[in-house]
Lab assay of single mutants.
Amino acid sequence: LQLFIKTLTGKTFTVEMEPSDTIENLKAKIQDKEGIPPDQQRLIFAGKQLEDGRTLSDYNIQKESTLHLVL
């Protein structure tokens, strides 16, 4: 599923993930694309901070959802 990642600077980029992927996987993918170390990434969806060990489906993140990346 394609997700939109929006940064505080207003930049938006996309990543391609599976619902079974963990937040950790997502942070690694963001590191590949943007060079931001996972330990500096905080991801927010629907007002909640996402925890590394959980999956996208745990948070009911669907295709074309927008996640906010806070550094």
Rank of each mutant, 00 (worst) to 15 (best):
L67Y: 03
T7E: 08
M17C: 04
P37A: 11
F13L: 07
E24T: 12
A46G: 14
A28P: 01
F13V: 06
I36F: 12
M17N: 03
T12Q: 09
D39W: 10
T12F: 11
E18A: 13
A28V: 11
V15W: 02
K27G: 01
Y59N: 02
S57C: 03
D52N: 09
E34R: 09
T55I: 09
D39Y: 15
L43T: 01
I5E: 00
Q41N: 02
I23H: 01
L3E: 00
M17E: 01
D32A: 13
E16I: 14
I36T: 10
L69W: 02
L71D: 08
D52L: 06
A46T: 05
L26G: 00
K11G: 08
G35T: 03
I30H: 00
A46C: 04
F13C: 02
V15N: 00
Q40C: 04
F13T: 03
T55K: 10
D21C: 03
T7M: 15
H68M: 09
R54D: 05
Q41V: 07
S57Y: 08
E34G: 07
K33S: 11
T7G: 06
I44K: 05
P37S: 11
V70H: 11
E18P: 05
H68S: 06
R42E: 09
I44L: 09
E34S: 09
T22C: 03
T12V: 14
K63S: 15
I30E: 00
I23N: 01
D32R: 13
E16S: 08
A46H: 15
T14M: 14
L71Q: 10
D52M: 06
D58R: 02
L1M: 14
D39V: 06
L8N: 15
Q62G: 13
V15P: 00
H68I: 10
F45E: 01
K11S: 09
P38W: 11
L3W: 01
T22G: 04
D52S: 07
E51G: 04
P19C: 04
L67R: 02
A28R: 12
L69T: 01
S20H: 12
S65L: 04
D21N: 10
K48E: 15
R42V: 14
A28W: 10
K11Q: 08
G35Q: 06
N25R: 15
L67Q: 02
Y59C: 03
F13I: 10
E64G: 14
I30K: 00
K11F: 13
Y59S: 03
E24I: 15
Q62E: 14
D52Y: 05
L26W: 00
L71N: 14
E18T: 14
L43D: 00
I44H: 13
I44S: 09
L67P: 03
Q2H: 11
E16V: 13
L67D: 01
N60I: 04
I30S: 00
Q2A: 09
I23R: 00
V70M: 10
S65H: 06
D21Y: 03
L71P: 15
D58N: 06
Q49T: 14
Q62S: 15
S57E: 09
L69Q: 01
R54A: 11
L3T: 02
I61L: 07
I61M: 07
G47H: 07
D52E: 10
Y59H: 03
K11E: 09
Q41G: 03
L8G: 15
G10Y: 03
G35F: 05
K29E: 06
G35M: 06
D21M: 09
A46E: 11
P19T: 07
E64R: 11
L50Y: 01
S57F: 12
V15Y: 03
F13N: 01
R42P: 01
S57I: 09
T14N: 08
I61G: 02
E24N: 09
I61K: 02
N60A: 10
K29M: 14
L1N: 05
G47V: 02
D58P: 00
M17V: 10
F4C: 04
K63E: 11
V15E: 01
K11D: 09
R54V: 06
A28N: 12
L26Q: 00
P37W: 05
I23F: 02
K29S: 09
Q62L: 10
L67G: 02
D21R: 06
S65M: 08
P19R: 09
E18D: 13
N60C: 04
E34Y: 12
N60L: 07
V70T: 08
I36M: 06
T9E: 07
V70F: 13
K33W: 07
T66L: 11
F45S: 03
V70S: 07
L8Q: 08
L50S: 01
I5V: 09
K27W: 02
P38G: 07
L71T: 09
P37I: 05
Q41H: 03
L67M: 04
D58G: 03
E51N: 06
E24P: 03
L43I: 11
T66A: 04
K48P: 01
Q49D: 15
E34K: 09
D52G: 08
T7W: 09
G10Q: 04
K11M: 08
A46S: 11
Q49F: 12
E18N: 15
L56T: 02
T12N: 10
A46Y: 08
K29G: 03
D32L: 10
I61H: 02
D32E: 13
K63G: 12
Y59V: 03
L71F: 09
G53L: 08
K33E: 13
Q2K: 08
Q62I: 13
G35V: 02
T9M: 08
L71M: 10
K27Q: 02
A28G: 09
R54Q: 10
L26Y: 00
Y59P: 00
E18L: 11
L26R: 00
K48H: 15
I36V: 11
L69E: 01
I5M: 02
I30Y: 01
D39H: 15
F45T: 02
N25L: 14
L3G: 01
S20T: 13
Q2N: 09
S57P: 03
E18S: 10
M17R: 01
G47M: 04
V70E: 10
E24A: 15
D52I: 06
T12S: 09
H68W: 08
E51H: 12
V15D: 00
T14G: 06
K33C: 04
D58V: 04
K27T: 02
L1K: 04
I30G: 00
I44D: 04
A28I: 12
T66Y: 08
I36C: 03
M17Q: 03
K29L: 14
N60Y: 07
T9G: 12
F4V: 09
Q2M: 15
A28Y: 11
T55V: 13
D52H: 07
H68R: 07
E51S: 09
K27L: 02
E24Q: 12
S20D: 10
E24W: 14
D21L: 05
K63H: 14
L69H: 01
L3S: 00
I44W: 15
T9K: 13
P37D: 09
I23S: 01
Q62C: 04
E64W: 12
P19Y: 12
V15C: 03
H68N: 09
L69C: 02
Q2S: 11
P37Q: 07
S20Y: 13
I5K: 00
L3P: 01
S20L: 13
E18F: 14
E64D: 13
L8F: 14
D58W: 13
G10I: 03
N60K: 08
K11Y: 11
E34W: 10
Q40S: 11
I36A: 04
N60E: 08
V70Q: 06
F45I: 05
H68K: 05
Q49L: 10
K29I: 11
D21E: 08
N25D: 10
M17I: 13
R42D: 05
Q62K: 14
T9W: 11
G47F: 04
R42S: 10
